[in-house]
Amino acid sequence: MSKIEIGHGSGGSLTKDLIENIFLKYLNSEELKPLDDASYINLKREKTAITTDSYVVRPLFFPGGNIGKLSVCGTVNDLLVSGSVPEYLSLGFIIEEGFPLDSLETILKSINDTAENAGVRVVTGDTKVVEKNKCDGIYINTTGLGELVIPLFLMDVSDGDIVIITGTVGDHGTAVALARDELHIDTLVKSDCASLHELLIPLFDIEGLKWMRDPTRGGVATALAELSEKTGLGVEVFEEKVPVREDVRFISDMLGYDPLYIANEGKALIITSPEAADRIIDNLKKHPLGRDASVIGRVTSNFNRVRLKTRIGGERVLDLLEEELLPRIC
């Protein structure tokens, strides 16, 4: 047994073998083990945050991560930026016939390691197999549940609020673009794919924390453009304050991408009252994942839309782009 066969998705004995010998080897929470149709979970708080996401990243393995790690981090980070502590995770797999089992094991191990590290339990799952060429290796769908600690609402964002990014922008999208075979460039750029639980949970206690977002597809620019559109407020972004790795800047220049529009998978965009900004920055900088945290802009009622103040003092608008420039980035 070295490849996924159609029978692995039949629900019969091959499925049983796959689940018991491969999946349970890596994913073995008490809730999951009975392998019943549904699992029972306990929720500690009155309110729960729920999110769902699907992962179709190409390629499946890239510097800094793989689709398994990405699907856990992405879901966990969605819960975290919504002011909740991630608790439970469901995983749905759609696997292409012929997919190598050792690749599946690598992905599952990665899922387990990442989930354990982030303190979330995989409590339910599903596997389907489709014929060769009907999907691209493996797709993963997740649902995440988190205990809501502090509800964050976009409507609380107001004139004068401060915009913070927790680290360098554009790493994930650049790493994945380069991992595709078309470009022959050797670099050290790695995806920033990481769970932000240690970085963000301590911020929940800080009064003045208004809103957070993980700037994945479309990057920081898109997240801010959406904020501006929904609130009717403007955002001023200072180009020289936005941390960008030297190699990411070089490669994106070469490929014609703007790091502000490139996906991140281990960063949070934070909107805070001016009073809380210093405390939040201090907190972030204590953790390795927040080492490069920086105040990159401010919210204003003087204009709408997002304006980038360039290094030389020029201005240009950061708008929503109609098309995703790098498809299947997560």
Partner: peptide, 12 residues
Amino acid sequence: EHTIAYAGIRSL
């Protein structure tokens, strides 16, 4: 043209 547009030179 890339530099002009990205640096926002026309706004200056």
